[in-house]
Amino acid sequence: MEILLALVLGTFFGVALNRAGATNPNYIINMLRLRDMHLMKAILLAVGVSSLLLFVGLAVGMIPAAHLSVKAAYWGVLLGGALLGVGFALSGYCPGTALAAAATGRRDALLFIVGGLLGAFAYMITYPQMKAAGLLEHLWGGEITLAQNAKYEALLGAWPALAVAGGIAVLLIVIATVLPRYLFRK
């Protein structure tokens, strides 16, 4: 059953990435250099809408809190994000979109994937050093959210979950809507 869901949901995700333009590095690079905010608007809307639905689903008991999967916060998250940002800007690919782009026939994405497999391998080998350097020490208790939920600690746990998550979601949706598609048209 889980495998069937993986097939259906994975296929849906691949279609969504392709139709959104995320498998096209022109769209990624033009977003990052603040020329064409198409993908930025789409991503902000996607996060806002999915977050709103998720927290409504949790509130009415349609979604079990066990389905949540919050990753730990540590300084390596910031540093790793910054490293990923370098490669993201250079190539216009991130791990998911490179795999999807290669499937649409982009040959440069194949090189990204080979480099990526080596990069992941390098991390497997150097993981003990990163751990010893203290980069993986949890911050603020590690697996923590802003909005209250039944599974993880929340920084704003004293407030109603729907007010916190809903407020952030509405803010993201508003930004997605008012952000001009072309910021600096020359």
């Binding site: 390596g76 998250v77 910031l78 540093l79 790793g80 994000g81 910054a82 490293l83 990923l84 940002g85 370098v86 490669g87 993201f88 250079l90 190539s91 690919y93 991130c94 791990p95 490179a98 440069d108 994405a109 090189l111 990204f112 994937i113 080979v114 480099g115 990526g116 497999l117 080596l118 990069g119 992941a120 390098a122 991390y123 497997m124 993981y127 990163m130 980069l135």
Partner: peptide, 15 residues
């Protein structure tokens, strides 16, 4: 792109 892939996945695993 090859180098970028290396950096991206190293960074992603660190993160």
């Amino acid at each position: 792109v090859f180098i970028a892939g290396f950096i991206v996945l190293y960074g992603a695993r660190l993160a």
